[in-house]
Design a protein around this nucleic acid. Structure first.
Lengths: 112, 112
DNA sequence: CAGGATCCATATGGATACTG
DNA sequence: CAGTATCCATATGGATCCTG
């Protein structure tokens, strides 16, 4: 199997990196794989992210139709973020990433 | 399966993004999946990357033990970059990324 | 051919403070 | 609780020119 045979492979990779790349987007998706989360839950989980950054990243993922924002209750407002049906399809990919990452840790990072 | 159950999943995802993230690294790896490439081959394939940027990215991947640099001939020097044994293990992951990316294109990008 | 050197543009994310 | 607004730091990658 040739990855880039159609001269498209690399472009497709770039597409996907647009989604899971960056400092937080992949992490947010990983968290949401386990179920819906509220804004502040995410904020606590992703230690050290600021409100403004988190908001930006969530908006980005929304635009890509990966996640959706649902207002659960008003005043005090409660918002829940969850994967869209389409977004859920990335779960398997995230599992693969984690799996490979664990192997990589053993082989490379462990050697340091 | 809970992705982030051990509070490690997200961290692992971050590790992997360190490798395939960024504007070029994933693309370079994708190209090298198909076999060794010379510096200028990569430069031509990855249209619009400059020498200095390509060099930086290659060095980065070398440090991570994903690829290796081999001098094939001197004067005029010819250099070949190829996946290390360890680096090759990421091929499957790249296939997954491309596969998912193609689906994503159909569903989201196609709708634009 | 395969870079190194230098300087520079922009994108990304962060700090801090404030709000419905 | 879940943001917004404003301003700012840094990382990333790029332009251009040079070299063994």
């Amino acid at each position: 199997m040739q990855v880039t045979s159609k001269e498209q492979g690399a472009l497709v990779v770039a597409d996907v990196l647009e989604i899971i790349g960056g400092k937080w987007r992949g992490l947010i998706l990983a968290k949401l794989c386990d179920g819906p989360k509220r804004f502040n839950e995410l904020k606590l989980d992703l230690k050290k992210v600021t409100s403004s950054t988190l908001t930006k990243e969530l908006r980005h993922l929304e635009e890509l139709k990966m996640i959706e924002r649902a207002v659960i209750q008003e005043s005090p407002i409660i918002v829940e973020y969850r994967m869209t049906t389409h977004g859920s399809s990335i779960k398997q990919l995230i599992y693969q990433i984690i799996e490979w990452g664990l192997e990589h840790r053993k082989k490379v990072i462990g050697e340091k």
